[in-house]
Structure formats: C-alpha cells, structure tokens
Simulated assay, not measured.
Amino acid sequence: MAALVAGGLVAGCGTTTMGQAADLAAVHGGHQDQDQQGQPIDMVKTTEADWRAVALALGRPGKLSADGTVYRVGFSRTDLKVTSHGVRIKPGFALGSYAAFARYADGSTMVMGDLVVTEPELPKVTDALQRRGIAQTAVHKHLLAQEPDVWWSHLHAVGRDPVAIARAVRAVLDQTATPAPAAPSSPPPINLDTSALEAAMGARGSNDGGIYKFSFARKETIASHGRVISAAMGVNTALNFQPTGGGKAAINGDLVMTAGEVQKVIQALRAGGIDIVELHQHALDDEPRLFYMHFWANADAVRLARALRAAVDASAVKPV
C-alpha cells in the first residue's frame, strides 16, 4: 500500500520508517502548494474515463460534477439501523460516506471525504488512515440522541497517483462494515409539499432516495493546501428533509460559515426552534477558515424551511 504525502507518494506497508514519518507529518502539518503567482492551484476538467481506474480501486462508480472537476464516490451505510429522537434515519438523510477527488494544474490529485463509522469502527479507521498517510481532519457527530452511536470522520490527502490514493481510501473503508453499492433505482416519492419548500428556501431542491435536499456554495473562492476546492468536494451548505408524516419532516445537514457568521446562524436556527448538534471544522488549513453547523428538528416542513432560509441568509452562500 502506498502512503500519501502532500507532494507525492512514499512506500509503506503498515510500519513507518523515519523518512516516512516526515512525509506523513507533511500531510498533517498543513503544507501549502501554490503557483508561481502565489495563487491557489486551479482544478482541471476531467472526464468519466479519467476516473475509471479510481472507481475500480474503490470497488464502485462515482459521479462527475457538472463542470467536470470533481469525481465523487458515495458509500452509503445501508447496513446501519440508526434512530434519533425516535426517528428512523434513512441512509440518504445522514448516513452517507463519500470521497471526492479532484485533479489540479500541477498534476496532483486531492481527495476530501467523510466516513460514517460506528463507535467500535472508529479506532480502526483512525489507525488505518494514519498508516496510509491520509490526514484525519475532523471527528464529530451529526445527530443527537442517536442509537447506536455513530461518528463521522473527515479525511484529506494529496498525491501524484490518484489510483494509489483510491486504494488507500478503500483500505480504510474496509475497516468498516460498509456494504457494496446497491443497484440504482428510482427514488420514492417525497411526501411533502416540495413546491412550498422551494419557495421558502428560494432554491431548487432534489429528491435523493426519498430525501429532499438543497445545496448552497460559498460565494468566495475557497482553498485548501494551496488548491482550489469547491462545493462538490463537500464545502457546501447541505439541507436535508426526511418526511415523517402529516407534512412534517426531520431536518439535518451542514451549514458552512466563516467565523463572523457563526453567531448569526446560531441565532437564526434557535429563533426557528431548530436544535444545534455540532459546531466544528472539516479541514485543517482552509482559506478562508470555515466552520460547519449541524442541526436537528422534526416539525412542519415548510415552517422549518423558512427558519433554515434565515440561517442560510446569514451566511455568504448561493444555491448550487
């Protein structure tokens, strides 16, 4: 297995030499790469064919973003039966792992991702990330009063060989009971007034496996490790509505904010009767520094959408 570093790859097989330790430290130490003008390095456009070997290494296909810059592979935890405040959580609502790959003008590939892991799996996942030189950039929860306890572990790596990166991610994923992907199927209908939700949010939503979702991107350019990162890499506000009957929905997701926006977002959420779950970061060296807010409520869906709109409007984001 190859261990990944910010500028390339070094050989690794579960033990770490002194040279490898220095390279691993570079992953965790926030090493920055930039072009000669000091600007973050841009993503380059790719095709589905460019990522076939990555999909093979991961054991499942992904989806290329509309602009061709990000190849995102999902790992749904359909094996887990999780409840929060008595609501059975659907995989598409809050139990989806992913790894997002992007190629850059300097020939490097970056991966950012988030793995849903059970509490017994978390130490094994942490050790596997460290053995393979993949940075663990956040560990947190998305849900309150959950049974069983589930954690989310963010990952980050940069290297010259995207297939080696994918193999390393697959080795980490294999420390969990994440099942093989299911055959594609049509999503079930949404038992909510989606037109009213869209009107309240001021944005178009989408049906993802029976969950109605909205996504918003930051208005400014975001960089990590001297490279541009986009909403498709997970740098976005993601709002999820899971129908719970009678026009009600459970809501969960992420709100992405700068430091100056955090208190305004909290106030907007609480004014709308929405609970705060977590406040944390996803990356270690993003610029500008970004924070993420997880939230929860289960009430009239349109009323909650209006409350979420106020929180969205308190941050500098735009609909994707």
Rank of each mutant, 00 (worst) to 15 (best):
76 S>H: 14
280 H>W: 11
276 I>H: 10
95 L>G: 00
16 T>G: 08
53 A>Q: 13
195 S>W: 03
88 R>H: 11
104 Y>D: 08
165 I>L: 13
192 L>I: 05
117 V>C: 05
244 T>A: 08
266 I>M: 13
258 T>P: 03
308 L>E: 12
9 L>M: 14
271 A>S: 12
42 D>P: 08
33 D>G: 13
73 V>K: 01
68 G>Y: 06
11 A>C: 09
51 W>H: 06
254 D>I: 01
22 A>N: 07
144 L>M: 12
126 T>R: 03
42 D>T: 10
123 P>I: 11
74 G>W: 05
52 R>W: 05
268 A>S: 08
234 G>V: 01
47 T>P: 08
79 D>C: 12
143 L>V: 08
234 G>A: 04
148 P>N: 10
175 Q>A: 10
281 Q>N: 15
192 L>P: 03
104 Y>C: 04
181 P>L: 13
300 D>I: 08
7 G>P: 06
50 D>M: 08
138 A>H: 00
219 K>Y: 07
270 R>W: 09
198 E>H: 07
277 V>G: 04
57 A>E: 05
120 P>S: 06
292 Y>C: 01
133 G>T: 01
13 C>W: 13
120 P>M: 11
263 Q>K: 07
63 K>G: 06
309 R>T: 03
281 Q>W: 05
115 L>S: 03
260 G>N: 13
148 P>S: 07
252 N>G: 11
296 W>K: 02
86 G>P: 11
272 G>A: 08
278 E>C: 01
168 A>E: 01
173 L>W: 00
78 T>N: 15
227 R>M: 14
59 G>P: 03
195 S>I: 06
163 V>C: 10
161 D>T: 02
89 I>N: 06
96 G>S: 14
290 L>W: 00
128 A>R: 04
121 E>A: 00
